[in-house]
Amino acid sequence: MATNVGTERVKRGMAEMQKGGVIMDVINAEQAKIAEAAGACAVMALERVPSDIRAAGGVARMADPTIIEEVMKAVSIPVMAKCRIGHIVEARILESLGVDYIDESEVLTPADDKYHVDKRKFTVPFVCGARDLGEALRRIAEGASMIRTKGEPGTGNIIEAVKHQRMMQAKIREVQNMSTDELYAEAKNLGAPFELLLEVHNTGKLPVVNFAAGGVATPADAALMMELGSDGVFVGSGIFKSENPEKFARAVVQATTHYQDYELIGELSKGLGSPMKGIDLNTLRDEERMAVRGW
C-alpha cells in the first residue's frame, strides 16, 4: 500500500475539517485550554496577541518555541503558529516542532520584502492572509492550503475584514461571468496565475478554504463574516482582551455555527461584558497598518 504525506489533498483537507469553526489566538496553556473547552476547532500559539504586538512596536517575530510546545501539550485540538512573511527558517522550525498549520502572517514584521515562503516544499500546510482575489491566488500558487482575510489585526474593528471578504466575493462573481479571452487579461490585472483563475471561473469559489480574520471582536462580528461567505473565523485579540474570555469564546463559537439564527446570537450577546476596546482605523498611521504587508 502506498502512503503519501504532505500531499495537496491532505494539506487542503486539513483546512476543510476546520470549516464552520473558530480558531483562537492564545499565549499560554491556560488560554489554550479555555479555547478548547469553549469549542474552538484550533488554536494559534503566540507570544503576544496582535493588539499587544501593535502596542509593543519594534520587530515582531516567531514565538518562543517553549510557548508553542506548552500549548501543544495542553490541548488535543490542532495548534497553529505564525512565521514572518518570507522567513523560511522560522517556518522550518515550526514544522520541526510539529505544529499542525503555519500562518505566514503579516501580523509579524516581514522578513522579506519581495518573496513569500515557497510553501509547496513543506509537509506542513500553510494559511496566508489576502485582501483580494489576486493576492489569494498568488498565495495559493506558492502552496498556501488555506486563505484568510487580512482585516486589520489587533484593532477589534471589523471594517477591513468585511472589505476584504466583500472584494474577494465580488471579484469571484465577476470572474465567473468572464469569457476566456477576458480571463487572460484579468490574470494579468490581478497578478494571478491563469490556471488558478480558470479554476475560480469554473467552480465559483477559491480552490482552498477561506476564513475571516483581523478585527473580529464580538459574536455578531463572527456571524457577519460567515454571512458574507467565510468558511470559518480566526479571533485574535478579541477573546482574551475581552472582559470575560470564557463567555466570549463560547459565544463566538456558537454564533459561528448558528450564524443565521439571530434570536440565538442576541441571547449569546447578552451580558458578555465589554469586548476588547478597539481602534478607529482613521487614527492609524499608514506605517501602522499590517494589512498592506505581503506582496
Binding site: 491532505v10 486539513m14 490542532p78 510539529g98 509537509t123
Partner: peptide
C-alpha cells in the same frame, strides 16, 4: 500523529469491491 503525519493511502475494503479506496487520513 499530528498534521505532518497525515497521509493518503490506497485501502482495501472488500465490501465496496476489489478496487482499493483512495483514503485520506487527516489527524
Amino acid at each position: 500523529g499530528r498534521q505532518k503525519d497525515s497521509f493518503e493511502a490506497d485501502l482495501d475494503m472488500d465490501v465496496i469491491g476489489s478496487t482499493p479506496f483512495p483514503a485520506v487520513f487527516i489527524r
